[in-house]
Design a protein around this nucleic acid. Structure first.
Lengths: 277, 277
DNA sequence: CGTTTCGTTGAAGAGTGTCAAGGCCAGTGG
DNA sequence: CCACTGGCCTTGACACTCTTCAACGAAACG
C-alpha cells in the first residue's frame, strides 16, 4: 500500500487479499493456482493523470491489472485521427494487444491517477507452462476482449447516436455496479471528445444527445456528473424501440404496445457491451 | 481430399503438407511441436454456401482452420440488426470468440462452399498443457484478432464512406496476395449488403462509392469482379488525403504536393486493417 | 424461362458534422 | 480574495454525407 516495490512475502498474499480478485482472477482456480498467479504479479506502478502506461510501438513487456483508476486505450491512424477503443477501470486487464507482435499497438493513457499491478511477460510464460488453468484463463481473457469488441463494432456499425450513448451509459453503470459503486450515479472520467471518439461521434453530438436525454428525464447531467433516472427508458433506446428511424418521439412511460420479435432483448446487448465479465 | 473422415496416418502429415501452413501454423515451432499440432486437427468438415459452421449460442467445441472457402462472422442485436464483424478466407482460424464463455457469440456463415479443419477444444487443452509454444501461439492468435478489431473500430469510428471502401478493397487485395492470388484482380464473395454491414454503411452507399471509384479510374467494377487500377490513389483516400472534408476532388494523377506530418502513413493502417499477420 | 436475389441509380430528407459564440469550472498568480 | 487563463461543455445555425424510398436492370437459380 505504501512502497512502490514490495517484498516477496507481501506479494504472496496480495492477490488473494486484493478486493478486485473476483474481477481479475480466474473463476475456477485452486488455491495452489492462485498462489502461482500471485507470483506473477511482481510490482505495482503508479501513473498520473494524463501519463501513458505504454504507447503504440513500445516493446511489450507486461500485462497490467488495474487496481485503481481509470484509463483509455486508443489507436491512431496515420493522419492523426484518434480512435478510443476502450475505457478501463479497476479489475480490468490491459495490454492484451501487445502479445500479437510483442509491441503494443495502442496507447494506454490514464484519465486519472492510476495504480496497476504488473504481470511481466516472462512470468506469464512460466505460468503458461506450469499451469494449464492459467494459460487457458489468459486465452479466455483474450477471447472476452474479442467478444466485447464485437459488441462495439455492432454499436459503431449499426446504431444511431442516441442508441450509442444509451448503450454507453448503461455499460458504464453496469461496470460501476460490478465494482460496488452506485449504478445510478457516477462521474464520467473522460471528456466529451473521448466519449465521442469511442462512440464514433463528434463531441458536440455527445453533448447534444446527453442534453436531450436530460430533457426527456432519462438522466440528469451536470458536466461530468451523471445520474440515471430511467433505466428502462435507456434500454428501450438501445434496443431501437425509440428513435428508431428518427420519427417517433420517446417512449412515454414504460409501456410499449409494439410487438418485438425477440423479447429477451437487452440482455444480449448488455452482455455484448460489457467489458470483461 | 476425398473422405470426410480421415484416419490417423493421413492426418499425421496433413498440416506440414498443407499449403496453408505458413498462415495457420505458428512461425517458430519445432518439428516436434508441429507434430503435436497435427494431432490437434482431428477431422475436416465441409459446409455449403449459405450454411452455418456455428451460430451464436451454440456450445463451443472447436476452433476451425479454413482450408478453402470464404465466410463471414456476424453478430446480431436484439432487434435484429446484423453486424458483419469479419470476413474469413483460407488460412484464417475462426471460432476464437467461443473460448470466452464456452459458447460462440457470433454466427459464422459460409459465403461459398467451404472446407475447414477442426481443432477440438479437448485437444486444444491437451496441447496447451504439453507445449508452451502452442499455448502461447494461441494467445498470439487471439491477440492478433484484437489488434485487427482495433483497426476496424478505427475505420468504423472515424472514417468516411470512401475511406472505408478504399481500406476494405486494399485489405482484401493484400490478403489475396498473401495467399498467392492476384492482388489487383479478384472476385468479391460477399454481397453489397454484407460489405455495407461490415463497414457500417448501407448497400446503396457501397454501390455508389464503388461506382465513383470506377468513374475515377481507381478500380474497375463489374458486379462482383473487381480490378484495382490505382493502388496509390486508394491509399491516398485511406489516409484521408482525398475526400477529406468532402470538398476537394479526387487527387489528379498520383502526385500530391501536400506536406503530411507523418510520412510512413499507409503502412500503419494497412497493418491495422490486416487480418492475421 | 420465370422467379428471386442482387446491383445500380436518382431524388429527397434525416442525422451528424462543422463552425462559431458563449458559459462553466478549476487552477494560478497577483 | 479576485481576476485571469485555459480547458471543457453547451447551444445554435448551417452544410454535407449518408440513408431512405423507389424504380429498374442484371445476374443467379430452380
Amino acid at each position: 500500500m505504501s512502497t512502490p516495490n514490495i517484498n516477496a512475502a507481501t506479494l504472496r498474499t496480495s492477490c488473494s487479499n486484493c478486493n478486485l480478485r473476483e474481477l481479475c482472477l480466474p473463476l475456477g482456480l485452486s488455491l495452489k493456482e492462485i498462489e502461482q498467479l500471485e507470483e506473477l504479479v511482481s510490482t505495482r506502478k503508479r501513473i498520473k493523470r494524463g501519463e501513458a502506461l505504454y504507447r503504440a510501438g513500445d516493446k511489450f513487456e507486461a500485462l497490467y491489472a488495474i487496481r485503481l483508476g481509470f484509463l483509455k486505450s486508443a489507436v491512431m491512424s496515420s493522419d492523426g485521427r484518434e480512435q478510443v477503443t476502450s475505457f478501463h477501470m479497476s479489475g480490468d486487464i490491459v495490454g492484451l494487444d501487445g502479445l500479437a507482435g510483442m509491441v503494443y499497438s495502442s496507447d494506454l493513457i490514464a484519465l486519472e491517477d492510476t495504480e496497476v499491478c504488473l504481470l511481466p511477460y516472462q512470468k506469464l510464460l512460466e505460468v503458461n507452462q506450469s499451469t494449464q488453468a492459467m494459460s487457458l484463463h489468459f486465452q479466455r481473457l483474450l477471447s472476452m476482449e474479442i467478444v466485447r469488441q464485437n459488441g462495439v463494432m455492432l454499436l459503431l456499425g449499426s446504431m444511431h447516436a442516441e442508441e450509442r450513448l444509451a448503450a454507453f451509459i448503461l455499460n458504464l453503470s453496469q461496470r460501476f455496479e460490478q465494482r460496488g459503486y452506485s449504478r445510478s450515479e457516477f462521474v464520467l472520467r473522460m471528456t466529451r471528445a473521448e466519449i465521442g471518439s469511442y462512440l464514433g461521434l463528434k463531441l458536440e453530438t455527445v453533448s447534444r444527445v446527453l442534453s436531450r436525454f436530460s430533457h426527456d428525464n432519462l438522466i440528469i447531467v451536470n458536466q461530468k456528473h451523471v445520474q440515471i433516472l430511467d433505466f428502462e427508458g435507456l434500454r428501450a433506446i438501445v434496443s431501437g424501440q425509440a428513435y428508431q428511424h428518427g420519427h417517433g418521439a420517446r417512449a412515454e412511460g414504460a409501456a410499449s404496445g409494439q410487438t418485438i420479435p425477440i423479447l429477451n432483448a437487452r440482455q444480449d446487448l448488455d452482455a455484448l457491451l460489457t467489458d470483461e465479465h
